[in-house]
Computed example of a mutant assay.
Amino acid sequence: MKILGWNCRSMFSPTAVRELLELQGRTKADVIFLLESHLNKYKADEVRRVLNFDSMFVVESDGWAGGLVLFYHKINKVVLNYVSDNFIDILFMNEDIVQWRFTGFYGRPSWSERSLSWDDIRNLHCKGKHPWVVLGDFNEILLSSEKEGGNAIPNAMMRDFRNCLQEMYWQSLHLEERRN
């Protein structure tokens, strides 16, 4: 399965749609997750048709910012699990059995709300026992060496993100130990 994630920062321009079509032509993605799409359901449906997908989940933009869209094909047997302004969480099914889980995630851009993003990740992690893939823009980095130019990121911000990921890692290990 191929999944394409793109922080497109608006799909209103014909150039953005052309670029997405080109990416889809090269990757042949089975699922496309767009962040900051700035789309409503009507416009997202137009893009869906252009890309030849038959299904989608949309978190509408406020018109100026945000917006998430996940395009997929019905043959993939996808079920919407959870949704918010910052993520779309789906389950991939085989018959009536969950095979794995995917979350398209967009971290809150405001530093004052960043911890809410980590709360979202923690809550999503606790609500599933299946293999899980998270893709998106967390609006955070793990290490200062990942950033070039601009203002420095406070160490506390990066530490909170690292702590969140480490917590989930250790919880996953303990869950795996209990299963065996």
Rank of each mutant, 00 (worst) to 15 (best):
41 K>C: 06
30 D>T: 10
64 W>N: 12
55 S>Q: 13
83 V>W: 00
26 R>E: 06
54 D>H: 09
80 L>T: 04
102 F>P: 01
63 G>Q: 00
43 K>W: 12
51 L>E: 02
93 M>I: 10
65 A>S: 12
39 L>C: 07
37 S>H: 06
70 L>G: 04
50 V>K: 15
75 I>P: 00
29 A>S: 08
65 A>F: 02
66 G>D: 03
57 F>D: 08
23 L>V: 10
83 V>R: 02
105 F>T: 12
18 R>L: 09
29 A>E: 02
56 M>T: 08
31 V>E: 06
77 K>I: 10
101 R>M: 02
88 I>D: 05
54 D>L: 07
36 E>I: 04
26 R>N: 11
93 M>L: 15
64 W>G: 05
110 S>D: 11
70 L>M: 15
87 F>P: 03
37 S>F: 03
104 G>A: 13
67 G>M: 02
106 Y>M: 09
62 D>V: 05
67 G>H: 03
49 R>N: 01
30 D>G: 12
91 L>C: 09
27 T>V: 09
100 W>L: 08
44 A>H: 08
38 H>D: 01
60 E>P: 07
18 R>S: 11
74 K>A: 07
76 N>F: 04
100 W>N: 10
62 D>E: 05
33 F>H: 11
85 D>E: 10
53 F>Q: 12
73 H>E: 00
24 Q>N: 11
45 D>V: 06
101 R>V: 12
57 F>Y: 15
32 I>Y: 08
94 N>W: 08
104 G>W: 04
64 W>R: 13
68 L>Q: 03
78 V>F: 11
82 Y>N: 08
73 H>K: 15
77 K>F: 03
32 I>F: 08
115 S>V: 11
28 K>P: 01
87 F>L: 05
88 I>R: 04
66 G>Q: 02
106 Y>E: 10
110 S>N: 09
75 I>R: 09
114 R>S: 13
68 L>R: 01
58 V>D: 01
45 D>C: 11
19 E>K: 12
101 R>E: 09
110 S>L: 11
113 E>C: 06
72 Y>G: 00
51 L>I: 03
93 M>N: 08
109 P>Y: 13
21 L>W: 02
23 L>M: 15
58 V>R: 01
22 E>C: 11
114 R>H: 14
75 I>L: 06
80 L>Y: 01
65 A>Q: 02
35 L>P: 00
53 F>S: 11
25 G>Y: 09
96 D>T: 11
115 S>R: 09
113 E>Q: 09
61 S>T: 01
107 G>F: 12
53 F>Y: 15
70 L>F: 07
64 W>F: 11
61 S>A: 10
66 G>H: 01
20 L>E: 10
23 L>A: 11
89 D>G: 07
